[in-house]
Design a protein around this nucleic acid. Structure first.
Length: 186
DNA sequence: AATTTAGTCAACCGCGTGGAG
DNA sequence: GCTCCACGCGGTTGACTAAAT
């Protein structure tokens, strides 16, 4: 087993200080994202690259929305989750300004509880298509995308490369599960 | 006012994947 | 084809806060 990065060097753990945040922001504004492993040393941070990446993606990125999740966003999360299962990064990719961590937390705290309260037999820990091979990496499905400044969903296709597509549709098959069109074409 | 319990979310951790050598 | 390594993802933890007792 590979040792986690924090065991290799002496590094800080836990909550980030304002100074650390500022160092990270300054460095990324100057040099851009990428090469997370060498970033901490280059930026003068006593953190592992993994921690820096997480902090940037989940908290410091300038395009992040700081307000709480709206009802239309919640609705979209529920529908995407029914299609994709716990693929939080894919789901978050459909919600501009939201992160996978945020979506995951929101699901586990708000939506899960809501669904259980509604008496749903659906187990939120085991999404509908959790083991559906059609929904592994590289698959597409038609689901709505929220535009940054509108609540009206538009049609699009999901794929591992996140390419946009039109015309992909979901059909029901004999088992009653959605039969996904896996076309990756633009 | 003090203590306990529940809820939230930032951060950690382990694992899978893919690229480079 | 194999090994090593960096990166990204999802599950989980734990610190903090609010609400209840």
């Amino acid at each position: 087993m590979r040792k986690p990065c924090y065991e290799k060097y002496e590094i800080n753990k836990g909550a980030w200080s304002k100074q650390e945040d500022q160092k990270l922001i300054d460095y990324i504004q100057k040099h851009g994202e990428g090469c997370w492993n060498s970033l901490p040393h280059a930026a003068g941070l006593s953190r592992c690259g993994k921690s820096c990446r997480l902090r940037w993606i989940n908290y410091l990125r300038p395009d992040l929305k700081r307000e709480s999740i709206r009802e239309d966003e919640e609705d979209l999360i529920i529908r995407l989750h029914a299609l994709l299962g716990n693929r939080w990064s894919l789901i978050a990719g459909r919600l501009p300004g939201r992160t996978d961590n945020e979506v995951k937390n929101y699901w586990n705290t708000h939506i899960r509880k809501k669904l259980l309260k509604m008496g749903s037999t659906f187990d939120p820990k085991k999404p509908h298509h959790h083991n559906d091979p059609h929904l592994r990496k590289g698959t597409t499905a038609t689901v709505p995308l929220l535009q940054p400044d509108t609540s009206s969903p538009i049609s699009f296709a999901l794929s591992s490369s996140d390419s946009m597509s039109t015309g992909a549709e979901i059909h029901s098959n004999k088992s009653g599960l959605p039969d996904l069109n896996l076309d990756l074409s633009l």
